[in-house]
């Protein structure tokens, strides 16, 4: 018979080996392949690929989508989390579920819905038609699609935290004469800043990489409505693998930076709540002293 100590050490080892093998094969190997493939044609080919005007245009559009999406969805996330956690009203859980809804809509379907909504024959689209505006297959479409798929991220990070923190500090602020805005900026925001940054990082990562919704809305007009992920697709379908991987390596770098930032914010978020044990002090003396 084996001793129970032996079994527990063996099972520990088995778990660790499986984990290491799984992570290396499944997560690390794809990263290696991106790097090796992107430098497969030499450094010069790599630099050519990432400095190609089309790549730069795609980078610009991706950047634009992030820049427009981020403030809007951050504002929405904060306001929605504020409404859901600081006030009592009926239908709260329904609203909370609605905020999550974009998660459950496949991106391609999201893109299609937006075509129905904004396209020539859509409700909103026919209105835009009158002003001779065509949103579909243009930059605004890309931005709106990105907006749609990243709606829940900030709110999702903030709601549980704000729920847990309750409203006592806000009540204290109000009783001390602070206005609603003052209460938010001086009391609520400092308490949620790391969770907010965490949500921002998730939003950036997703808006940078969104493919499905953007793909059906862009019309693939090269150099005009192509984001970096779409640019990769075009290069790949042209069998220009080295260039496709070179551009991918850029996005991979951004993803890794995202992970680092995310780890940092997450660490900050969780270290903020550490409790120091404090000995009860001596008896207070006379207040007059």
């Amino acid at each position: 018979m084996f001793s129970s100590d032996y079994i527990s050490r063996l099972s520990r080892l088995i778990f660790q080996v499986i984990t290491l093998a799984f992570v290396s094969l499944f997560l690390i190997l794809p990263l290696c392949v991106i790097i090796s493939e992107s430098f497969g044609g030499g450094l010069k080919a790599y630099l050519n690929a990432i400095s190609h005007p089309d790549t730069l245009l795609a980078l610009g559009l991706t950047f634009l989508a992030v820049i427009v999406t981020l403030p809007l969805n951050v504002l929405f996330g904060i306001v929605a989390a504020w409404a859901l956690t600081k006030y009592e009203f009926r239908g709260k859980s329904l609203l909370s579920a609605l905020i999550d809804l974009p998660f459950a809509v496949p991106p391609v379907i999201a893109g299609f819905i937006l075509i129905l909504y904004l396209g020539k024959h859509g409700v909103f689209g026919s209105l835009l038609e009158k002003f001779d505006l065509n949103i579909i297959f243009s930059t605004p479409a890309i931005v709106i699609a990105t907006l749609f798929v990243t709606i829940p991220f900030v709110a999702r990070e903030l709601i549980p935290l704000m729920q847990e923190q309750g409203t006592e500090e806000e009540q204290a602020a109000v009783s001390l004469g602070a206005s609603t805005l003052q209460t938010f900026f001086y009391v609520t925001l400092p308490n949620i800043k790391w969770a907010l940054l965490y949500g921002i990082i998730l939003t950036v990562a997703r808006s940078m990489g969104e493919f499905g919704a953007v793909s059906v809305l862009s019309g693939h007009i090269r150099g005009k409505t192509v984001t970096l992920p779409l640019h990769i697709e075009i290069l790949y379908n042209e069998y220009n693998f080295t260039a496709a991987f070179a551009v991918s390596s850029l996005l991979m770098l951004l993803a890794l930076l995202t992970l680092i930032a995310k780890e940092f914010f997450f660490w900050k978020l969780n270290s903020g709540g550490s409790v120091h044990q404090v000995q009860e002090d001596t008896v207070p003396g006379d207040p007059a002293s």
Partner: peptide, 10 residues
């Protein structure tokens, strides 16, 4: 964090 197109080709 990795854009799905990148994951796809990798």
């Amino acid at each position: 964090a990795l854009p799905t197109a990148v994951s796809g080709i990798a």
